[in-house]
């Protein structure tokens, strides 16, 4: 700007216009690259879904022909899968287990987190440190003895071990709900105490309603975790009738897929059935998913 070689006004104007044009072209190019990248990535991320849905609607001979639109459309795959395996029972099991797992963990964590945030007692922060430390523990360390506990209680080959551990809270959710409680002003509770409310009452009537969002986030996250879990059903369930959907899908894959009867259209239709409820829940509770992930990064 300070450079002041003598130039005519027209020259300066021409140069400026040229520079402006160049900047515009560069912006346009950047825009094109950006849109191309976005579209490319979108196609790559969506292609497996599209392939899955399309292949699940093809007749057996054409499952792997990679045509986008099935011809003919084999709706009967979705009928056959219900007949090939007790999918309806598995769906019911998954819903029940998922609901119990989510409800118990939400309630217990809400109570525990309240204990760790509102009350003052010696050793509280040390204990809370212990809660956080347990998050680091690989599941494999406790997997065998916890199995022995349920085995000792005679509850192996029932669905109880899939959710009952949640009655005792879960470190990550305790942390998460506590974050929400800490954002509430303490005076809110003190005022209720002065009015003679019991601790249980201030938890139920003040803390819980005010942290509704956090509770929904926890419920959704745990429902998803339960819905997608394979390890626990593999360990605890032997009877086909007790299977949850992921365990059932694994059984279908073993029976009809690789090395089995090679009826892949059944496997793929079952995969769609397992996945769709998650997608529905995501669209209903999108905001809570995003909120939950954002809170999980708070530690960072």
């Amino acid at each position: 700007m300070a450079a002041s070689t003598p130039e005519t006004l027209a020259d300066i104007r021409r140069q400026q216009a040229q520079r402006l044009r160049q900047a515009e072209i560069r912006r346009l190019l950047a825009r094109i690259v950006f849109i191309a990248l976005l579209i490319g990535c979108t196609i790559m991320f969506m292609a497996p879904f599209v392939w899955l849905i399309s292949a699940s609607l093809k007749v057996r001979a054409e499952v792997f022909n990679n045509e986008l639109i099935p011809d003919p459309i084999a709706w009967e795959n979705y009928i056959n899968v219900w007949q090939a395996a007790p999918v309806l029972a598995w769906l019911k099991n998954s819903v029940i287990v998922g609901f119990l797992a989510a409800a118990t963990v939400t309630l217990s964590c809400a109570a525990i987190a309240f204990g760790f945030s509102y009350f003052r007692f010696p050793g509280r922060d040390t204990l809370f440190g212990l809660v956080l430390a347990t998050m680091m523990l690989p599941g494999a360390v406790t997997m065998v003895p916890v199995f022995l506990v349920w085995n000792g209680l005679g509850l192996v080959n029932t669905q109880v071990p899939l959710w009952a551990g949640n009655l005792f809270g879960s470190a990550f959710y305790i942390f998460m709900i506590r974050q929400f409680y800490l954002s509430l002003p303490r005076e809110l509770f003190e005022a209720a105490r002065v009015d003679g409310a019991s601790y249980l009452q201030i938890w139920r009537h003040i803390a819980l309603p005010l942290t509704r969002t956090a509770l929904i986030v926890v419920f959704i996250f745990e429902f998803k975790a339960s819905w997608t879990d394979l390890i626990k059903p593999l360990i605890y369930l032997y009877n086909t009738a007790l299977f949850t959907l992921p365990r059932g899908l694994k059984a279908i894959l073993d029976q009809f897929g690789q090395g089995g009867e090679m009826q892949w259209e059944i496997v793929l239709a079952a995969s769609v059935i397992v996945t769709i409820p998650m997608i529905v829940i995501f669209f209903l509770g999108q905001r809570y998913f995003m909120e939950g992930i954002a809170t999980s990064g708070l530690k960072g």
């Binding site: 109570a111 204990g115 809660v131 938890w203």
Partner: peptide, 25 residues
């Protein structure tokens, strides 16, 4: 009173910690 109530609220975690984490470890 406050301390006892606080301990009562966290007691589910403590029991779970003993039975499903510390004990199994």
């Amino acid at each position: 009173n406050e301390m006892l109530a606080g301990l009562a609220f966290i007691s589910p975690w403590f029991i779970g910690f003993l039975v499903f984490t510390a004990g199994p470890m």
